[in-house]
Each structure stands twice: as structure tokens, then as C-alpha cells.
Simulated assay, not measured.
Amino acid sequence: MKEKILRALRSAGGYVSGASLCEELGVSRQAVWKNITALKENGYEIESVPKKGYRLAAVPDTLYAPDILSRLPESCLCRKVECFSSIDSTNTKAKQLAELGEAEGTLVTAEKQTAGKGRRGRSWESEPGVGIWMTLLLRPSILPVKVSGLTLLAALALVRAIKDVCRLDAQIKWPNDVILAKKKICGILTEMSSEENYVHYVVVGIGINANMASFSREVEETATSIYLQTGKKINRAELAAAWIQSFCEYYGQFIKRQDLSFVTEEYNSVLANKDKEVRVYYGMAGQISLENTDVGIARGIDRDGALLVDIQGQRKRIVSGEVSVRGLHGYV
């Protein structure tokens, strides 16, 4: 009910009478009052004026399930959100829920991760209260070989969400990083449980550097945050919901078409390295060496999500997995 109350207050833009809320929600005044009291205890400033009703005056910057859900259309695939103050990894929790039969569209979020995971075995810093750490559980009707396309859609959905919420033009560093000012603000880790020709479930984990004011020396040269680029704190629930909505829209089309042909032009328009010289690194992160690399010109992705790179007069398809692509003179 808290979700519905927040949805009603936010859509009204002003005061909503208690009687209207009771009628819309089909509950008693006492039930409305009880849930509004609970929202206030969670940091939501809700004004109550006799003969006018209730008004949502301010919201806290927190990842709160009713808030996230209230920002999504009721037709959205994501209809359940589980929020944790601290957890080892949202991907790990989502996989545990999947094994227990949890429904597609369930989202797991955390204010802090103690064992966050990145692509190719890397760890992921998860400072509490300033980032967005979340994982979406999916049960797609696709072949396992198609699953990597979900990572690209997750990145593209975040570019759109950042544009809508923050009015910033982010770019993508293929396959799973979103960047601002040539620095990383997001990483994506997609994992699946499958058999040879069948996917049991997929978890799409995303970590977004939202309101960080600083980074450790190890990553400060390549990482940034939305706050550092704008000087303004964003509401994390708003950005999270914007990403979920965009991703679920892309996801629906992807399942219908079974490839990325419907977004290749859009994706390539925000690909940071398109038509630029890149170095392709083969192998796990700890095994990278210049001897095991190629240099070429990145031309964009194809309908299967492979990066097309012109290397020594030949166009090669670079498939995500044990491969990393960087700019010739730096991260991008």
C-alpha cells in the first residue's frame, strides 16, 4: 500500500484528500494514516493539512522498495523489490532467490555490498549510501549464446536513464561500462544458469557511481560519479527506476526479436570508441599482456552484440567474455 500511496501523492503534485486515497485504494482512513506514518518514519516528508489532505513535500535519498515501485508503470516487468542495508553481493542474493523459484522481474538492491563482483573476476567498490547496487532476475526464453546481449541492453538503458534524469550524455565502453568524461560510472555483470540449449535464469547486476564525492587512489584515474560531474546529488531511487523501466522496455523487444537489430544504431551512436583506435586484450584480467593483444579500429556492434574491429585489413568480430577493449592511450 505504501507504493500506491506514494504513486498517488506523486502523480497529484499537490494535496490529496484522505477520502480520495481511501476510495482509490479501497481501504479505511486508519489504514491510510498507518501507512503514511510508516512512510514518515522512513524519512518521507508528507504534509497533512485539515480539509486539504496529504502532500508529498520531500523524499529521502534511499533505495526503498515502495518508492522504486511507485515510480514504475504498473505494467512493468519489475513488480517486486527486495532492499538490504548490507549484503555480500546483490548478484549472489538474486541467484539464491532464482534457485528458490522467485519470479522473473524481481529486483535486489543494497545500500552496501561487502563482496561486490565485477566482470572478469574483478572486485567492485560499494560505498554505502551513495551508489546504486542492484540486480534484476530474468527468466528469458532465449538460447544461452544470446544472453550477452542483455549486458549491452543494460548499458544502453542506463545511458537513456541518465539522459532523462540527469540531463547528461553518457557513453558506453563496450561491452559493460558506462562512462562520463571518459571515466567509468557504471559496471555491469550478467550471470546465468543454463544447460546447452536452455536458460534457467539470468541475473543482471549493475553498480552505478551516483553520489560519490571521491574514490580510492587505485581507481580515481578511471572512475567518476554523477555527483562529481554535476556537483549535484541525485535521487537514487529515481535513477534506479528510470533504468529498470528503460531496460524492461528493451528486454521485451529483445525477447521478441531474439537479437539486437532494433538497437544497433542507437547503441553505436553512444559507443565511446566508435571509429577510434583500440587495443583488444585477450585473457583474464590478471593474465593480460601486450603480447596477447590486437590493435584496430572499432566500427560498432552487430546484431548479436559483437564488437566489429578492423584489424590489419580484416574485420573481426570481438565477442565479450575473456576479452577487454580499451583506447590505445588509456581506459577509453
Rank of each mutant, 00 (worst) to 15 (best):
A94C: 09
G43T: 07
G252V: 08
C78T: 04
E238V: 11
M212Q: 13
A154G: 04
I87L: 15
N235M: 15
P50I: 14
R122V: 01
V32W: 05
K232M: 13
L150A: 08
E74W: 09
D67R: 05
F247M: 01
E125N: 15
A181N: 11
V145A: 13
P144L: 12
V325A: 02
G321P: 14
K274P: 09
L189A: 14
K146A: 15
E3L: 15
A8S: 09
V219L: 10
R303E: 08
T90F: 13
Y44F: 06
R236N: 07
P73N: 12
L9T: 05
L189R: 15
S246H: 04
S320A: 14
M134G: 02
F215L: 09
K52A: 08
S289K: 12
W124K: 07
N197A: 12
E266W: 14
Y227E: 03
G131Y: 05
G313K: 15
V178Y: 01
N292F: 10
L290W: 10
E3S: 15
A285C: 15
K2P: 09
I226C: 05
L21H: 01
S11R: 02
L100T: 14
K146F: 14
I87K: 08
R71K: 11
I226R: 02
I162D: 04
Y281P: 15
E24G: 11
N42L: 03
G129F: 06
A8G: 01
V130H: 03
I162Y: 08
L138W: 03
R303L: 06
G116D: 07
K276A: 03
H329T: 10
V165E: 04
I297S: 03
G283E: 15
A98L: 04
R120S: 10
V280Q: 13
G286P: 09
K232E: 15
V202T: 02
L138M: 00
C22F: 12
G283C: 11
E220V: 13
L308F: 11
Y15T: 07
N211L: 02
D259N: 02
A103S: 14
S70T: 06
V323H: 05
I185R: 06
A98F: 08
R279E: 04
W133Q: 01
E277N: 10
A223I: 02
W33K: 11
D164S: 14
S123W: 13
V204F: 09
L72W: 10
K274G: 00
H200C: 07
I288F: 04
R55N: 08
M212C: 13
L6C: 11
W33S: 12
